[in-house]
Every structure is written in structure tokens, then in C-alpha cells.
């Protein structure tokens, strides 16, 4: 008889049936994917970022291929909070998956307003996307620890929902950024968001992206993500939602060993519609083969030299 494996994981106050969550912006609100997968099989879905007002996003081209990755500059296109509450959230609730709602804003007040609006809803986790430029400072919210602390604390005041603070890797010290999120009252940190990059069409002497720069994702960023996850795991006492270039179940194990309590899968969904169901099946098989009864036992088990 094969070993029964427990894939469930604990992330701060939240229990997920398995560690595989769709990464924000690569899975919409789950509507498109329900045509080809059972959404309830997933650990959860971090839905597309919602802003207070609707956003049309950037002009195309919005993507450029890179070695083992891609740049995107979607520009937070979304239907806005009101439409989200009236149409997207009810759909997600009826679909019955674990809902992580990614939110983004130009000001601290935007984040507070969004969190207040989500506080009494079926959303299970609020994820603060801090990669957006702050109107007041011009920098992204995630760029400076004091800003991270300020926005996290402000949101913490208005909601009792678990807060995942999603950090940008475009910083000098990811550990300081995570520490600031912890001080602000985060329940976990999600890392990493995309790395800022530039792709050039030398013939036209123009950037390929209309926005000039964009965020790099995919296997190209995985080593950077693993290093950051492990650095935060070793220095900050806060659960970690790890991501960046995860394509396979083996990648998930690596992230968990580095210290991630659960993971998010982004770019892989864009290449293989069945990426996440496949990863979940493979995780179970790998655990059986390796005699791992509880997957969560692996978290942080990396032995440094």
C-alpha cells in the first residue's frame, strides 16, 4: 500500500490543502481556467491585483521573451473595486477555492480603502502588492522599509484578515524589507515579485515594451528568488510565501527547503495550462517515493555548508 501523504500546509493563521497557489496576475480571477481545471484542487488562487478605480493598463506591446523568462508590463489592468465586489468576488466565492486577493494602490489611503472593503467579504487573505510606484514619493512602496512598515500598519488597523505583504526584489536588502513588513503587522511575506528589466529591439532602436521597462519572471529569476527566500527565512521570524520561476514539483520542494511555507506559481501557468494540477500530483508522488508523510516537515530544512 502506498504511503498516504499530507500535502497541507500552515501559513500563519491560514491552512491550505496544499502549498500550490496561483500567482497574482497570471491567473485572472480564475474564470478562464475553470474551463480546463478543477480550481478546488489548488491550494489557492492569488487573484489579479485590484485597485480602487478601474485601470486600463499599459499600451502594447506588454510582453517580451527573454532567456528562460519573460518581461511583462501589463500595468495592473483591472476592473476596479466596485466591479470586483459586484462581479469577480461572487464568482470566486461560488467557485469555492481559497481566495487570496492581491491589492495595489498609489497611496496608503488606497490600500486602506481596499482592505476595508475586503474585510467583511469571503476573501481569505489580503495580499499587499507593494511593487507599485507611490504617487507621493515616486518610489515603489516596497523600495524603502519605512514605507513598507507604514502601509502594512495602516492596513493592519482596518482588517483582521491575514495579511501577506508581497515584496519587490528591487531592493538592497530583502531581509530589511521583510522585517519592516513584520513590524507593520504582516502575517506572511510573499516573495518575490518581478525583477525590473529592459528588452531592446536593436533594429528599431526602441525598447520592445511600450512601457520601456517591465517585470522579469520565470525560471530566469528562480536562483534570485531562492536566495531571497532563504535569507528572509534565516533572519526574520515570519512565514514566507515563495515564488519566482517555479515550473515543477522539484522546484516547490526547493522553495520549501529554503524556507517557504507555501508557494505561488505564475509564469508556468502561461506556458502549460495544467502546470499547477501537474505539480500537485508530482508533489504527492515525490513525497511517496521519498517517504515524506507530511510535506510541511520540509520547510526550512536546507542545510547550509
Amino acid at each position: 500500500m502506498s504511503l498516504s501523504v499530507d500535502l497541507s500546509v500552515q501559513v500563519g493563521p491560514s491552512r491550505l490543502k496544499n502549498p500550490v497557489v496561483a500567482a497574482s496576475g497570471t491567473f485572472g480571477f480564475g474564470r478562464e481556467a475553470q474551463a480546463f481545471m478543477d480550481l478546488k484542487r489548488l491550494g489557492g488562487i492569488s487573484a489579479k491585483a485590484v485597485t480602487v478605480e478601474p485601470r486600463l493598463g499599459n499600451l502594447p506591446p506588454r510582453t517580451a521573451e527573454t532567456a528562460s523568462g519573460l518581461l511583462n508590463s501589463v500595468g495592473l489592468q483591472n476592473p476596479g473595486l466596485q466591479h470586483y465586489l459586484a462581479h469577480e468576488l461572487p464568482f470566486m466565492q461560488s467557485a469555492g477555492f481559497f481566495i487570496v486577493q492581491n491589492i495595489a494602490g498609489d497611496t496608503v489611503e488606497d490600500y486602506v480603502q481596499l482592505a476595508e472593503a475586503l474585510d467583511q467579504t469571503a476573501v481569505q487573505v489580503i495580499e499587499l502588492n507593494l511593487s507599485c510606484p507611490n504617487v507621493k514619493h515616486g518610489l515603489s512602496f516596497g523600495a524603502k522599509p519605512p514605507l513598507i512598515r507604514e502601509v502594512t500598519a495602516a492596513v493592519r488597523k482596518v482588517t483582521t484578515k491575514p495579511l501577506w505583504v508581497k515584496l519587490t526584489p528591487n531592493v538592497t536588502s530583502i531581509a530589511e524589507a521583510a522585517q519592516a513588513a513584520r513590524e507593520g503587522g504582516a502575517d506572511a511575506v510573499s516573495l518575490i515579485n518581478t525583477l525590473l528589466g529592459l528588452a531592446i529591439d536593436w533594429r528599431s532602436r526602441r525598447p520592445i515594451l511600450h512601457n520601456n521597462t517591465g517585470g522579469l519572471s520565470g525560471p530566469a529569476v528562480k536562483p534570485v528568488a531562492l536566495r531571497m527566500v532563504n535569507e528572509v527565512y534565516r533572519t526574520v521570524d515570519l512565514p514566507i510565501v515563495g515564488m519566482g520561476g517555479i515550473m515543477t514539483a522539484e522546484d516547490v520542494l526547493e522553495f520549501m527547503l529554503a524556507g517557504a511555507s507555501c508557494v505561488q506559481v505564475g509564469t508556468a501557468n502561461l506556458l502549460h495550462p495544467q502546470a499547477m494540477p501537474q505539480i500537485i500530483r508530482d508533489l504527492e508522488r515525490l513525497c511517496q517515493e521519498q517517504g515524506i508523510a507530511r510535506l510541511s516537515q520540509l520547510v526550512g530544512q536546507l542545510q547550509l555548508w
Partner: peptide, 15 residues
Amino acid sequence: ERMACGFGLCRTCAC
């Protein structure tokens, strides 16, 4: 348009 997924998930192919 330049596209990443081709099946509606990523919104990189906007027009």
C-alpha cells in the same frame, strides 16, 4: 499582438 499565454490568463496581448 505579442502574447505570453494565448488563452486569456495574463493580459499581455491587450489591444
